[in-house]
């Protein structure tokens, strides 16, 4: 159980950090649309973010509407706790 919590926290921290990095890069690129270095950084971190999100979703439930997970007997998007009540936070 403890191992699970640690892994959940680790994956969530990675998602938070990677999503934040891509958000910062997106906002930078909006005003620097021809900065090719920044564009490569974005693609790199965005790819990593996608991977970690898939892993988190498979193990702990969905956080994105377009990645509901594979579960066929429970709509976890609705049954999992909200982020301010012990969910993805």
């Amino acid at each position: 159980m403890n191992q699970n919590m640690t892994e959940k926290r680790r994956l969530l921290r990675d998602i938070n950090v990677l999503d934040f990095t891509t958000t910062e890069l997106r906002e930078y690129l909006d005003t620097h649309p021809y900065d090719t270095d920044a564009i490569s950084y974005f693609h790199r971190y965005n790819g990593m973010l996608h991977q970690v999100t898939k892993e988190y979703t498979a193990k702990f439930g969905p956080i994105r509407q377009d990645m509901p997970g594979n579960c066929m007997d429970e709509w976890k998007w609705a049954t999992s706790p909200m982020p301010w009540e012990g969910g993805a936070c």
Binding site: R13, V17, L18, F20, T21, E24, T31
Partner: peptide, 22 residues
Amino acid sequence: PMQQAPVLYENLEEAFNRGTIF
């Protein structure tokens, strides 16, 4: 002034905790 040729924090987790990657 426009931000130019920006450097990113090496440790992105630290950057996240601080609120900016720059």
